[in-house]
Design a protein around this nucleic acid. Structure first.
Lengths: 362, 362
DNA sequence: ATGAAAGCGCTAACAG
DNA sequence: CTGTTAGCGCTTTCAT
C-alpha cells in the first residue's frame, strides 16, 4: 500500500468523524485528546471511526487554536561537523517519539546567522535545542525567557544544558600515558570560544597538576581543522614532549600527519590522544581517543526540552555526560629518557610558521 | 540585543499593523505578500510599520488558510552516515533561503519506520526530500502523486531524482590504475539495495570491459561497514588482484586494515581506491577516492522540490551530479608481474570466514 | 455528558 | 484600489 493515505482520506476532518459518529465536533475532539474524559464506550467508538477514516490531525489548525506548535527548532553550527550528526539523530528520535518534530537549522558557524534564523523560525516553534551555540550567554538567557531552551555544550546560568564532558576519558587516557612513563605532555587547543576546548584543557591541566613531575605545554593553532593540526605539529615537535592530547580527532589526525612529515615516528617518538570518537566507526583501532556518548546526550537534551515545554522546572540544570577513554595504537611506552628534550620558555605561542615554538605554561 | 523580539512584539498580528496604519487587514496582507499590487507609497508605508512592530507572520495561520504548509519533510535513513550531513546542510540552506523549513526525520534504515514516519509527518508538510529511500519504487511513485517529492540517489520513473554519480570519478581512478600497470581489479560491493552500489559496480564493469586484458573480481561482504571491509580483505587477498575499488571510504578503510593484518603492504602490494570522499576532510592525503559534490546535489534536490511546490513541471527528471577522482597515497605502480597471482573461479562468493574466496565474474 | 459557538491569524473571494 | 466577509480545522469556554 501507499505510505500515506490517499488525498481524500488524508483530508479527513473532525467534522467528518463527528458526522459519521453522530456526535458533535467537540465530542470527537475530547475523545481523541482527552482520554478518559468521556464514557469509555463513546470514546472507543469515536476512536474506531477515526482510525477507519484514517484521520490525522491538522497540526496547523491545532497550533493556531492552542497557540502552541509541535515544532521544535534544532540549531547546529555545522551539520557536517562529525560532532553533531549522532546528537541530532538521538534528539530527533526522542522528539518524534514524543510527537514532536524537529526543524533543523544550520547556522554556518556564524552568530549573526544564528540570531537571524532563530528570530525568523522561532516564531513558529515551541522550544529550541541549541547545540554548541555561538551566541553570547546574555542572548541565550534572553532567549530562554521567551521559549523553552535546552543547550548542548554550553554552560549558561539558569539555562538547562547537557554537557558532553570528556574530562573522565581524558584523565583516564593521561593516566595510561603516565603509567607508560610519559612525563612531558602537550595539549593542542581547539576553538577558543568553545566550551569543549576550555573544559578539555582544564581536564588536562587538572590531571597533570596532581604530580609536580609532570609538565604541560599548550599549543594554539590558528585553525581547528586537519590543517591546523598539521601546523600545530611543528610546535609539538620542538617542545620535547613525548605525548600529546589534541582537542579533537580531526585535528589529531592533522597532528599525526604533521609529525610524521617532520620525520617523527608515531607512536614510538610521540604518543597521540585524540578526543570525540568521531572517527572511530570509520577508522577503528588506530587513534586512541575519548569516546563521547552522543546518543545519551542528544536524548537528554530532547527530554529536557520536552519537560520544559510541559512547564516542568528542570531540577538539575546542567547535566554532564561523561566520555570514556578508548585505547588505540597511537599510545605506547614513553621513549627512553635521554631522548626527551626539555623546553622552558613560558608564554603560549601560536603555532605559526614564523614562531614554531611551543611553551611550557605550568 | 535579544535574538528574538520580546513576547509582546512577537505576537504582533496583521490586525495590529492595520490599526496602526489606518487600513484594513487585507490591505496589509497584500502589502506584505503581493509586492507591487498596491500603490508603492502605501506598500512602503505598511511595510515600514510592520518592520517597526517587528511583525512575523504566524505560519500556522497562513498554512491553515491557504492549505499549504511551508514545511518540507526531509527523510534520511541515517543522519550519522557521513554520506548525508553535507547533503542535508546544502538542502537545508537552500530551503531556508526560499523561506521553507525542513523537518528532519531519520528512519533508522528501516522501510517500515520510513513508511510510518512519512505517513505521520507528511500530513502537515508540503513537499518531501527523500534521500536514499529504502521504499520500493511503487511506494515512491504513489507518494509523489500526493505531494511534491524529490529523491536523492534513487532512479524511479516519473519521480524527480538527483543522482550522485561516481562513474566519472571511478573511471578516472581506474584509468590512473591502468596507466600504472594494473590489470586485475577487485570491486568490493556495498549494500545490494543501494542504487549507489549498483551504479558503482556498473561503472567499474563498464570501464574494464573496454579492454579484454583487464580482469574483474567482485567481493560481496556481508555488511557495508568497516568490519565488512576487514572481512572482504580476505577475499581480496587471495584473488590475486593488484588493485581494489571499494564501495565507499569507510569500507575501504576496513579493507586496508584487513589487508595490512594479512601481511600485505598498501599500496605496494595492492592499490586501494575508495569512494565518497567522506573521510577526506578528516584524513587528508591518504586514501585515494572519488569526491562527490554533496553541496550541488543537496541544493539541486531542494531547488527541484521548490519548483515542484510551485507546480512547475521538472523538465529533466533525473539529474546526475558527477563525482571526480581524488588522488591519494593508496595508489601506486602495479607490483612486477611475477608477483601477481591469477584466479579463475566464476561465481561470486560472500566474504565469510568459511569461504574466503573471491571469484572472477567477467 | 454533550452540543453550540466563538475565535486563533491569515488569505481570498467578493463587493464597492 | 481597498474594505468586508467568510472560512481554513481545531480547541475551548459556556450552556444545556
Amino acid at each position: 500500500m501507499s505510505p500515506t493515505e490517499d488525498a481524500a482520506s488524508s483530508m479527513v476532518t473532525l467534522a467528518d468523524i463527528a458526522a459519521r459518529a453522530g456526535v458533535s465536533m467537540s465530542t470527537v475532539s475530547r475523545a481523541l485528546n482527552r482520554p478518559g474524559m468521556l464514557p469509555a464506550a463513546t470514546e472507543k467508538h469515536i476512536r474506531r471511526i477515526a482510525a477507519e477514516l484514517g484521520y490525522r490531525p491538522n497540526r496547523a489548525a491545532r497550533a493556531l487554536s492552542t497557540g502552541q506548535s509541535d515544532l521544535v527548532l534544532v540549531v547546529v553550527p555545522d551539520i557536517a561537523n562529525p560532532f553533531f550528526p549522532r546528537l541530532l539523530r538521538a534528539a530527533q528520535r526522542t522528539l518524534i517519539d514524543a510527537g514532536l518534530y524537529g526543524v533543523l537549522v544550520d547556522t554556518s558557524d556564524s552568530p549573526e546567522t544564528e540570531t537571524r534564523l532563530i528570530r525568523e523560525v522561532a516564531r513558529n516553534t515551541h522550544g529550541i535545542i541549541n547545540m554548541s551555540s555561538r551566541l553570547v550567554a546574555d542572548d541565550l538567557i534572553a532567549l530562554s525567557k521567551e521559549q523553552p531552551l535546552a543547550l548542548i555544550n554550553r554552560e549558561v546560568p539558569g539555562v538547562p544544558g547537557i554537557l558532553l564532558d570528556a574530562e573522565a576519558g581524558i584523565q583516564a587516557g593521561l593516566e595510561r600515558l603516565v603509567d607508560l612513563g610519559h612525563r612531558r605532555f602537550a595539549y593542542v587547543r581547539g576553538p577558543a570560544v568553545s566550551w569543549s576546548n576550555r573544559r578539555r584543557e582544564e581536564a588536562v591541566r587538572g590531571y597533570l597538576a596532581r604530580d609536580t613531575t609532570l609538565g604541560l605545554v599548550t599549543v594554539d593553532p590558528g585553525d581547528s581543522t586537519f590543517d591546523g593540526g598539521v601546523l600545530a605539529a611543528e610546535s609539538v615537535a620542538v617542545s620535547g614532549v613525548t605525548a600529546v592530547q589534541v582537542f579533537d580527532d580531526v585535528m589529531a589526525q592533522g597532528v599525526i600527519h604533521g609529525l610524521l612529515t617532520l620525520g617523527l615516528r608515531i607512536p614510538e617518538d610521540i604518543s597521540v590522544l585524540g578526543c570525540d570518537g568521531t572517527l572511530a566507526p570509520s577508522i577503528r583501532g588506530t587513534l586512541a581517543t575519548v569516546a563521547l556518548d552522543y546518543e545519551e546526550a542528544g536524548a537528554l537534551a530532547a527530554r529536557t526540552l520536552i519537560q520544559l515545554r510541559r512547564g516542568v522546572e528542570v531540577p538539575q540544570p546542567h547535566i554532564r555526560v561523561p566520555g570514556s577513554f578508548l585505547p588505540g595504537t597511537t599510545i605506547v611506552q614513553a621513549p627512553s629518557p635521554q631522548e626527551v628534550t626539555g623546553v622552558d620558555s613560558r608564554a603560549d605561542v601560536p603555532a605559526g610558521a614564523d614562531s614554531p615554538l611551543a611553551a611550557t605554561d605550568r
